[in-house]
Write a protein that binds this DNA or RNA. Structure first.
Length: 474
DNA sequence: CGGATTTGACCTGCGC
DNA sequence: GCGCAGGTCAAATCCG
């Protein structure tokens, strides 16, 4: 039997033991927590190291790309320097994008045309100059000034007619050398607003119900410069009313604001690739559908009514979006359809089959490496339309430009196959800003102002991604 | 009031 | 030559 007092003593001693045990356990738990925290810190440190390595790799890729780009744009830079020497800082900040046509003064244009005419049997460009080239400052300023003077002296009606005559003159010149009409670029994007905001100023001048589509087609004219021949048509897709089809035609003959460069460069680059393919034989492009057999029809080159048209499809059907998301940055380097840039672009010159050039591109490999390291990045980008459009514009512009300048004309480049899984629109200011940011970062030399804006945009983008637990140091 | 949009008329190219 | 469809013009209207 155990007495009550004895029991009490036993209990108290037990309590002490329990307390002691508890203290020991608490201590060991704290130690465990500390150890866990240390392990976690170590993991984070390792992660940081890994990210640093990745970042440095990307920076290396970027710098090599930049060197390459700088070399290519040397001539353009000279023009920009000339512009700044002319005393207009604002103008030097702007970039002129030529979409399908040479945009200099008519005399030079004629010279170019006659030159190309004499050389047209020698696989030369048929008077089409495309890409991110800076306008010759004198040319662009002259055009603007002339048009302003005209509008003052002759009145608005005469401006219209002179613009019209100018356009007709251009067309005549083009028609003489190229039986095809002006190349067009159609951009398909999901958009709930009436029109996509692409940074340019447009004025609506007509609306028509086109055959086969109950949705009216709206016609817009670029109003940045009174003499700018660029038009765009906006129409909703008959298949999906949420999809807006914007078709661009013509070349801006004036500097563009930075916010307009992303879309313009994507479209101009697409046309550049079209013109690359059409150098040898324009007609051989007509009617081609370059969609993959395995993928849905997404990007095509066609020539409805003799208009060679590149269709940039920035939408994705729902049933494919997951697949696209997962394959967007798949790390299979051997796969010719990484990034879903499908690789069956027919070789116009019947050049021998080669590895897809984009897979060899430093920028591509850099992004691919990083995305390959962390599938979350791929998912993050796949779910962010602004990133997709920005990357689309950046890749298309940079690689197309490199290709043009390096004279690679039929290597199967097909960055216009931009099959990003995109469920939203590219039209928000954020998207355009993001695209501009990417373009500035990867595609264009920046001034300090642009650099600050870009830095801020990239930073906020990175921060928002960081909040979501993503690691993206683009 | 000036600039942007709307909308019917007109022009142009193309196929039959 | 005719009809159709796409594209443009320009007067009327709207809107900030």
């Amino acid at each position: 039997m155990i007495f009550e007092g004895e029991a009490m003593i036993n209990m108290s001693s037990n309590n002490d033991e329990i307390e002691e045990t508890l203290n020991t356990e608490t201590l060991s738990m704290e130690e465990a927590n500390v150890t866990r925290a240390k392990v976690k810190m170590e993991e984070v440190r390792k992660e940081n190291e890994r990210l640093k390595v990745t970042l440095s790799q990307i920076m290396e890729d970027y710098s090599s790309l930049k060197k390459q780009f700088n070399g290519i744009t040397d001539q353009s830079k000279k023009a920009t320097i000339l512009a700044s020497m002319a005393g207009s800082d604002e103008e030097s900040d702007l970039v002129c994008l030529s979409l399908g046509r040479f945009s200099g003064p008519r005399e030079e244009k004629k010279k170019m045309m006659s030159k190309s005419k004499t050389l047209e049997n020698g696989n030369k460009l048929d008077g089409i100059e495309l890409g991110l080239n800076s306008c010759h400052p004198d040319n662009s300023i002259e055009v603007s000034r002339n048009s302003l003077v005209e509008s003052k002296e002759e009145g608005s009606n005469d401006v219209r007619s002179s613009t019209k005559h100018s356009r007709i003159g251009d067309d005549e010149i083009l028609q003489q050398n190229n039986p095809m009409k002006k190349p067009r670029v159609s951009v398909r994007a999901q958009c709930n607003t009436q029109t996509m905001h692409d940074g340019c100023q447009w004025r609506k001048y007509g609306q028509k119900i086109a055959k086969g589509n109950p949705c009216p087609r709206a016609y817009y004219r670029c109003t940045v410069s009174p003499s700018c021949p660029v038009r765009k048509q906006v129409q909703r897709s008959i298949d999906d009313m949420s999809i807006l089809i914007t078709t661009y035609e013509g070349a801006h003959n004036h500097p563009l604001p930075p916010s307009a460069t992303a879309m313009a460069s994507a479209t101009s680059s697409a046309v550049a690739m079209l013109s690359c393919g059409s150098i040898t034989s324009t007609s051989c492009l007509t009617g081609y559908n370059f969609s993959t057999a395995s993928n849905f029809p997404r990007t095509t080159i066609s020539s409805s009514q003799s208009h060679p048209t590149v269709i940039l499809d920035l939408t994705a059907p729902n049933h494919h979006s997951n697949r696209l998301s997962s394959t967007l940055f798949s790390n299979t380097r051997s796969s010719p359809t990484s990034l879903n840039f499908s690789s069956n672009f027919p070789s116009i010159n019947n050049a021998t089959t080669m590895a897809p050039p984009h897979s060899q591109h430093p920028l591509f490999s850099g992004v691919q490496k990083q995305a390959g390291n962390d599938p979350k990045i791929a998912a993050a980008i796949a779910h962010d339309p602004s990133f997709q459009s920005a990357l689309a514009a950046a890749f298309t512009s940079i690689v197309a430009k490199n290709n043009n300048v390096n004279g690679i004309r039929s290597s199967g480049m097909n960055f216009h196959h931009l099959n990003f899984a995109q469920s939203s629109t590219t039209t928000s200011n954020a998207s355009v800003g993001c695209a501009a940011s990417f373009m500035s970062r990867f595609g264009q030399p920046m001034n300090s102002h642009q650099h600050n804006l870009t830095l801020a945009a990239s930073k906020s983008r990175a921060m928002s991604l960081a909040d979501e637990g993503e690691h993206l140091s683009l």
